[in-house]
Design a binder for these strands. Sequence first.
DNA 1: CACTAAACGAGACGGTACGTCGAGTCTTGGA
DNA 2: TCCAAGACTCGACGTACCGTCTCGTTTAGTG
Lengths: 203, 203, 203, 203
Amino acid sequence: MGTEATSKNIGPEEPKKAGRPRSEESTQAILDATWALMLDKPLQDISIEAIAKVSGVGKATIYRWWPSKCALVIDTIIDKVPPELEFPECQSAAESIKKQMQALIKAFAGDYGRILGEIIAESQACPERLENFRKNFIYKRRETVKAIIEKGIRNGEFSKCLDIDLAVDVLYGAIFYRLLVKHLPLDQAFAEQLPEFALKAIK
Amino acid sequence: MGTEATSKNIGPEEPKKAGRPRSEESTQAILDATWALMLDKPLQDISIEAIAKVSGVGKATIYRWWPSKCALVIDTIIDKVPPELEFPECQSAAESIKKQMQALIKAFAGDYGRILGEIIAESQACPERLENFRKNFIYKRRETVKAIIEKGIRNGEFSKCLDIDLAVDVLYGAIFYRLLVKHLPLDQAFAEQLPEFALKAIK
Amino acid sequence: MGTEATSKNIGPEEPKKAGRPRSEESTQAILDATWALMLDKPLQDISIEAIAKVSGVGKATIYRWWPSKCALVIDTIIDKVPPELEFPECQSAAESIKKQMQALIKAFAGDYGRILGEIIAESQACPERLENFRKNFIYKRRETVKAIIEKGIRNGEFSKCLDIDLAVDVLYGAIFYRLLVKHLPLDQAFAEQLPEFALKAIK
Amino acid sequence: MGTEATSKNIGPEEPKKAGRPRSEESTQAILDATWALMLDKPLQDISIEAIAKVSGVGKATIYRWWPSKCALVIDTIIDKVPPELEFPECQSAAESIKKQMQALIKAFAGDYGRILGEIIAESQACPERLENFRKNFIYKRRETVKAIIEKGIRNGEFSKCLDIDLAVDVLYGAIFYRLLVKHLPLDQAFAEQLPEFALKAIK
DNA sequence: CACTAAACGAGACGGTACGTCGAGTCTTGGA
DNA sequence: TCCAAGACTCGACGTACCGTCTCGTTTAGTG
């Protein structure tokens, strides 16, 4: 967990609240139900009503802890999806990036990718939600990639005068392009060709 | 017009239908109202009900000709948006692409881009709608870019063994990435730097 | 036929109109379809739309000749239902009335009665329709009954100072009461007992 | 209240339900609005939509508690109409019946009668609704009349071998006949003549 | 024999209301 | 204080008919 504007942004010093504590059971039931529904049908077709029904929870309980379906969904995939694609330690920065891109393409090819696309879609109309999404899925990974690129610059693999943000966009843009527009699949061939191809731009 | 699964798929030989003909007046009123609402607020907040009210048309008339809000919106921008970004005739293919990318980035920075993003979002849940969108906005332009790239290959600007589809994705992916994820703006600086940068990958 | 405010109120001197004459074929198709639908489901659930579809006729053709569903239905049963319950010629007026009441009860027990009830229902809100119904179904028969009663008065069967209208209401009221409120059936037993019973009031 | 198939069929032992209780305020607002509209125009011209609007209540709230406009209307008159025409205590049963019939005719002559007629009309198509109406308006009063008649039989006013149900139909049939067919008014003259006249049949 | 005029089927039109769904909020009693 | 249950207002959904309105096509009588 740990999504801003959602349920679990509590600092290290909890102020010792009175009253009945939040039910861990309900929380999990909600996340489980949300995940089950997300695997079953598109995000647009999922209602808070349905999540409440499936999880056996009062609707108000959901609204108490999450401000929007989107925020709940984000917490759900954070809760459900395995640790995270870490960058493998490689000798060259390029190799490191290549491996990670390939892992990402593979991950985006399945339900995980579909759901991410649906979240981006759902967030289009609302800047805060989109920012929330970026905080949890984009920025962290971008920072990591940028660190690798900087390492590549330091060790001479990449040009010194590289615009790092632009580089990241060129490297990963095509993946998001296919993820969302779906004109071509995020398949094995794509995973094999894209990294080498895109990396040419930053060398 | 001319969108599949929408209102105007009439072959060259119209079979001379009986009954009162479709009202061109209503059609235009619907498109006008849709466009006005789209400029005013996000697609998600627009209801068929509102479009009917604003256009002074019966709801059923909208449903008779468009299967979904999305289809209507696509027909609307087709109807409303100026001719289309043509590729300027340049001596080099690279130059031609660069100019067109810059024009595209500029166009995507305003309402046109916002609306396109909303359409992609709205279509995420439904393959047919997304395909409909691609037919009208993606494929045509991709074909044009691909033709230019092929020209570039022929005249030696680009590598002979270039995967053209991949090249297009790398060139334009970053634009869609920023359009939809909005982590960074589609601004002047981006327009100036991206083309040259991305083109390095295909040279 | 011959319903006021409906399709066939043509005086003896038709003004010799130009243009295509009314299609007898369509007229019959409409009446047939209406009748078929009326046997199938309650009047409330029958739409002009459905009648048009079933009869293969344009909606406007129905509206051209009948001002309301009710008027059409009245014309339909006039068209479909066998001649009419005539009063049998009997020696005594009382006997004559009794026979006719029994015939009426029997007739009201089936679809004919059901439909008549539905027409009365449908006409409740609109005085003109109700008057139209009375013209076609009530007044004529009342006149006949009244004539018989007058005959009975003349030949000494009934009291000289009888309020004839009131007498008719008492005789037939119970039948309509059961027809519309349905608290008890219009069955054989009722047919056997009512006439003798009610006639006691007017002797 | 207390109408079957409507909102308030609660046995003596309410099972102590969870959740927010039904809003008495909304219930009354709905009944008030329905009554106001019923006084204003024919039942056929009243929509649930309008009742919701006038009462300031969500449409769903109406549908939650009443299955049909008819059921709501029945509950409304039960709620709105004064105690009920009681049988006056008279020495003779005949006198008692006469007084009550006159009161009934007078009551039926106004809005109350009009609305009752509209309810019978509206219920024609649906046996359950009609039964619901009978339960609340017909049976109770019939039972009372029947009790008086039985008393009359016991004290020798009426014949011993009287079919009581038939007697009630003959007494009241004419009233319903005029209420629904409207061929003659439910006026003062009718009220004065009918009872004596009809009672002759059962003496 | 063309011309006129009305009726015809088909079906689109602006409306109104339907009955349902879900949103987000509120109000109970019990834990 | 939290929770489930569930009622609340509100707004939109997509559908069904209403009664009206064009269309192009018959089908008479008239000129």
